[in-house]
Amino acid sequence: MGKSKKIMFIMRKAPYGTIYPFEGLESVLIMGAYEQDISLLFIDDGVYTLRKGMDTSALGIKNFSPTFKALEGYDINKLYIDKDSLDIRGMTLDDLVVQPELVDEEMIPELIEEQDVVIPF
């Protein structure tokens, strides 16, 4: 296999209303099998996918938030979250199932542009 690529997945939609965040997470797990340099960035409504205490049983669909905690097991450790997106939704890191690195609008463009591939969901 050639040199690994820097691949960033951007989660920017709320969970359950659309299939986007679920598909994004599935893609992350698939790519995790290929030993690439994977990172995840949570912006806009994507921060809602990480809220603690989800119970989707009445909706009859899978609560996928615990899967974010399993990413470490796939050697996916680079998680970032936009501080503004959290702030504006009245949330902090304490509200989340995982603890991504807080980043801001100065750092995020740099993170995005240093990637070989960026895949927003």
């Binding site: 920017r12 609008e105 463009p109 740099e110 542009e113």
Partner: peptide, 11 residues
């Protein structure tokens, strides 16, 4: 708006 906020100048 998101792209304006999170893209590097010149891109």
């Amino acid at each position: 708006d998101t792209v304006l906020k999170f893209s590097k100048k010149g891109s």
